[in-house]
Structures are given as structure tokens and as C-alpha cells.
Design a protein around this nucleic acid. Structure first.
Lengths: 249, 249
DNA sequence: TATACTTATGTTAATATTTTACACCATAGA
DNA sequence: TCTATGGTGTAAAATATTAACATAAGTATA
């Protein structure tokens, strides 16, 4: 029955932003590519996906707010590399920012339990029917749309965090991971300290930039995911600290 | 300068769901198709459009949450009528929902102090540089994007509310203002009880509908703003309760 | 149960698009 | 002025998509 195939295919498509015909063929080796093409055409008519060269993209995964994210291609690579660190049944913290919003598009619809300080991240995550989404309450910063303040700190102190996905505004060897605002730093620091595993997502434009407030040192991170090799000295320091360094490309 | 071309092209792309390379070439006969291809690639990286066979599609025209608000004209009238009840220097609560999102567009940029349960409302309010915006923390409901749960209740109990702008899902004479979910009801009830002034925004489609959970009675409201006269009996009851009834038209 | 009919699928050739690679030109900074 | 950078054009090469027809598998009707 072709219905079963379509259902499985739909799930695959909904689970990530892009699926190639190659992947589909791998998943369904017993039907021809032409059939899969026709399936995709069907999904396009259904409004589930749109056909692109080489495969298709799921509509729900297209981030809705088209505010141009700088360095989007790098962030996409990083996001993809970060997905394997998600674990169901654990408490996962997702930071604020465009890198995290990009990540959201790559998160499959499984029974994850999320907490975030970014309302836009929360909205994206809510598209996943199986996810449980918590948003941290508090004062919202007008510019970067992150929640901070006393209420936010209190909120966080009440919950446990297994894995935290964080992003800095800058990073260098001496000061570690830094941000521009005190409040934001405070929040991230709490999260970094509570989390059993800190996964730092950082595109290469952050390298060599240092901002006033450090929320985490190199040693404080467990995993660093980036899109380019850092300088040798920096790299050595990371590896000596026992950090797992991933260069997505 | 290629910038002018890109800007014009961006506008074209944003104006409709699909633009073919043919159309683009027609619009810019003096550049090669290859250049337009490269432009489209640029837009794809920017997150503005996605390449498809034969041209490109604009992301804003696809995004799933370009949710058409039902009965928008009525909601606009109601929103406009609600603005005079906003006061600077007071703690203002804004409910979740499309009526409230409509309201946001009418709020002038003054030194208001807002608290809301709706992340989309929060994002809208943040556009006002002078506003102070607080978002209630807690569990986010996937469907209607409102925050509820124990954390949310606790959050609310810590703050004062002067004026609360609320919306019901249904309203009738016997049951008052009702909603479909227990958690949502719980939250609204807390707000309605804490607020010194309850302003109920309700388009006429809510009349005569009754849902399982009542969060506020007619007497509990101070102002009711709607777009059509309620039945005489209902109207009499409202006026006898000392409620200020406003029919925006 | 047999028959016709619809629908899903496979195969391959024809077609169209996309990419690649390289050359060229203009502009801006040294 | 030289050199580097980035935008652009051209055409061939690689690739993907479509179209057309053939076949199988269900489905409905007599």
C-alpha cells in the first residue's frame, strides 16, 4: 500500500529542512525514484513541502521570520552538526539568538523537553507536536529578544538542565565566551553552571572578538561546534581542556 | 551598481509567491541569466527566498504562520477602542490571542509597562522602544501559543496588575467569559482577580458560545469592548452590573 | 467470478535546467 | 600604477526533471 510509504515519507520530510531524493531512495529502496518524485509532487500540492533541485524542503521548517540572519550558511552547518547532541527525555536548554533559531529548523519532532529564553525559539519549537516547550519568564530585551532579570534567574534556578546549547557574541583565548550585556551574561552563566553538558555553537565570525562579560571559559564547555578551524594556539587550548571540537563544513 | 538591482529584485520576489528566471530577465534585460541566478542564490543565503526549478519562491509567502486572523476588521475596531484604557506608569497585562496581537499594532510608543503570556504579543510590544515588556514564564501550549502551568501561575502571583486586557473564547449570559482549556482558564482567572481594572475585548462571534471553563463573570469585568450590540437581555445584565459597554463601529 | 476501469508504478528517452570553469572588466586600496 | 577583489558574461558539461508509454495492482461493477 502506498499510503504507508507516504506517511513515512511525510514524517521524514517534516523532520528536517531538506530531504534529497537520494535519501528517500535509501529509505525506500523498493520503489523507483520516479515514484518518490510523484510523492513529493503530492506533498507540494498538500502544502507540506516544496520541490527543489535534488529533493524537497518542508514548509514548517522554513523559519517564518525572514529577518536576514547574518552568515546563515555557516549557521546551518553548525545547526546540523548540533542535532546529534539532543537527547529525548532530558531537559534541554536552548539559548537566544539567530544561531538557535536556525537550529530549531533542524530539530526533529521527538519527545524532547525544551526550555528557552527566546520567544521566537519557543514559537519555532512549538511547531513540533511532540516537544514540550518551556519559556523562561522575565523582562524582555527589546533588541535581541532575550529574557533576563531577576524573575528569569529565579525561574532557571527552579529547573534542572541536562544539556545546554549556548552561543556567545564573542570568543577569544584569554576571555573565553563573552557577551555585551551584564544581564545576558548573568543568565547564560547560570545556565552554563547548571548544565551537565554545555554545547557551544559559534560561527567563525565570533573568533577574536572579546566583549565585556564572560559567561563561560573554554574549560566550562563540553562541546564547541563551529564552521572553521580556530588558530592553532586556540585549538590546542581547547583540546587540552578536554573539549570536543567540531568543525562543520 | 548591482545593489539597486538586488533591491528591486528583492521587492519583486517579496511581492509574489513565485518568480521565474524568465520574468527576472524581462525585468532586467541588461544582465545575463547567470547573474540573476547568482542573485537568487544570494537571497537564498539571506533567507529571503528559496531556489526552485525555473526560478524562486519567497519565504514570507510560504511561511506557515502567516495566519490569517479571523474577523480582522472587527478586531481592528475593538483594538482601536481599547487604546484609551492604556495608562503609562501602570502595570498592564495583555492576554494571548489574535485580538491582542491586533491590539499591539495600535499601541503608541509610550512608557508603558507590559506583561503578557503570548510570545508573539511580546515580540510585537518590543518594537516600541519606550515600552517595558515582561513575558510570563512557563509551559507553552503548542496550539494557541499561550503560557500556562504552575510556573506561570507563580510568576503572576509575584507581580501586580493594574489593568488587564483579556479575551474569552466564548461568552453567554449564564456562564460569563469562558475558554476551552483548564490551564488557560486558571491563568486568566488569576489575572482577572489581581487586576484593578479588567478590560474584556471580544468580537461578536463570541456571543452565545459557551465553553467548559469560566474565568470571569459579567460582574468581574469593568469594561467590555465589542463590535456589535449584544441582545437586550444580555446588555441589561451588563449595565446592571456596572460594566462599561463599548460597541466599536 | 470475470471483466473493465482506475490508479499506482517502472523504464527510458527527450528535454530543460543548473552548475562549473574560465575569462573579462571595473573598482578600490596600496 | 599596480594588484587584489568582486561582479559579470559565455558556453560547455553535468545533472536533474519531465514526458510518454508500458505494466502491474487494486477496485468496482455486472
Amino acid at each position: 500500500m502506498f499510503k504507508a510509504r507516504r506517511d513515512a515519507l511525510r514524517e521524514l520530510i517534516l523532520s528536517k529542512p531538506f530531504v534529497s531524493f537520494e535519501e528517500m531512495s535509501e529509505m525506500f529502496p523498493d520503489v523507483s525514484e520516479m515514484t518518490l518524485r510523484r510523492d513529493v509532487e503530492y506533498f507540494e500540492n498538500e502544502g507540506v513541502a516544496i520541490k527543489v533541485r535534488g529533493g524537497c524542503r518542508s514548509i514548517v521548517r522554513l523559519s517564518s521570520d525572514s529577518d536576514d540572519i547574518v552568515n546563515l550558511p555557516a549557521k546551518k552547518l553548525i545547526a546540523e552538526a548540533a542535532v546529534p547532541f539532543l537527547e529525548t527525555g532530558r531537559s534541554i536548554f536552548i539559548d537566544s539568538g539567530s544561531t538557535m533559531r536556525t537550529l530549531c529548523g533542524y530539530i526533529p519532532d521527538k519527545r524532547y523537553s525544551f526550555t528557552t529564553t527566546d520567544p521566537r525559539v519557543a514559537l519555532e519549537l512549538c511547531k513540533n507536536a511532540n516537544a514540550s516547550v518551556n519559556i523562561v519568564g522575565g523582562r524582555m530585551e527589546g533588541v535581541n529578544h532575550t529574557v533576563t532579570g531577576l524573575q528569569a534567574s529565579r525561574f532557571l534556578s527552579d529547573i534542572n538542565i541536562d544539556t545546554a546549547f549556548l552561543t556567545p557574541t564573542g570568543f577569544d583565548e584569554d576571555n573565553g565566551f563573552t557577551v555585551a550585556s551584564f544581564n545576558e551574561c548573568e543568565l547564560k552563566r547560570i545556565v552554563a553552571e547548571k548544565a551537565k553538558c554545555v554545547v557551544m555553537l559559534m560561527d567563525s565570525s565570533k573568533f577574536g572578538r572579546s566583549l565585556p562579560y564572560t559567561f563561560c571559559t573554554v574549560e566550562g564547555a563540553d562541546v564547541i561546534i563551529t564552521d572553521a578551524e580556530p588558530e592553532t594556539a586556540v585549538k590546542r587550548k581547547m583540546l587540552l581542556s578536554g573539549v570536543q571540537l567540531i568543525c562543520a563544513r
